[in-house]
Design a protein around this nucleic acid. Structure first.
Lengths: 145, 145
DNA sequence: TATTGTTATACTCTATAACTATA
DNA sequence: TATAGTTATAGAGTATAACAATA
């Protein structure tokens, strides 16, 4: 399994499969719904607790400028708020608002729902177990690469 | 496992993990190397055999226009060729050239190599097995969604 | 000097619309 | 009419560069 050809085969397969999945997910664009980076940032902020824009950019592995744009859009919708850090005038501490929590808790995100529906309909119980086992590995892969 | 909350949990986890992984993979930009859609289209063409642009667009789930742009760039590099279909004047049959095969076979794609290296270094044998089991499921998910 | 964040600008990947040529 | 493909244009999501404010 650790021999190069098998691992490269796996890498190629993941590349194609994940590319396809992301393209399809991005196409799920619904009125008043969140975009992919917005969804990801909001979920991340909820997990990590109040933090700064720069720290979130590191977690999501994008530039601080890109994260700033995403957070600006979330703030405009009232899903997060920025408060000045009393100890450091440069920083703004970002936290999820009640409205943001509601969006997260109600699972009203069309993209997640679409994915969940497809998982329920098209996959057997044992296949779902395999995906449950793989999901944290994929996240780790994204962080380690 | 088929109960809604568990599946939605899985969907959310996949969404975050896959988004992160794709962002990182896209950042692997090397001189003279292929972009993600180029890599994906070339690999797909090799698997499927000679076919048309419209058929490839359906397989990759993107618009025919987008596929046309990607194929144009692969053709300019000499990795694929387009030949008129003798039976249907509207169609062009697309096939991988020798140079294209060489790129595929030599696995010189920096993105695949980077992914493979990370897999070898950071994951145990049994974790790799889990990913091998999950890879085709992820591809199926991309097609079914 | 270094860090946080913003503004300006550009590139990649994708989409939709409008068109030509062929069936 | 319908289909294969092209050209034109636009939007999303990212990047880098240059800057202001604060540490």
């Amino acid at each position: 399994m650790r021999s190069d050809p098998a691992v490269e085969e796996l890498a190629g397969e993941l590349l194609v499969g994940i590319g396809l999945l992301v393209r399809r997910l991005r196409q799920t664009q619904v009125e008043h719904d969140l975009t992919m980076p917005e969804t990801s940032a909001l979920a991340r902020l909820d997990r990590a607790g109040p933090t700064t824009s720069a720290a979130m950019a590191k977690l999501e592995q994008i530039s601080p400028q890109s994260m700033g744009a995403t957070l600006g859009s979330l703030e405009a919708r009232g899903l997060i708020e920025r408060n000045p850090d009393p100890d450091d005038g440069r920083r703004a501490v970002i936290s999820v608002t009640k409205a943001g929590l509601k969006v997260l808790r109600n699972r009203r995100n069309a993209r997640t729902e679409r994915l969940a529906r497809s998982l329920s309909r098209e996959f057997t119980r044992s296949e779902l177990k395999q995906l449950v086992a793989a999901a944290p590995l994929i996240e780790r892969l994204g962080q380690s690469i």
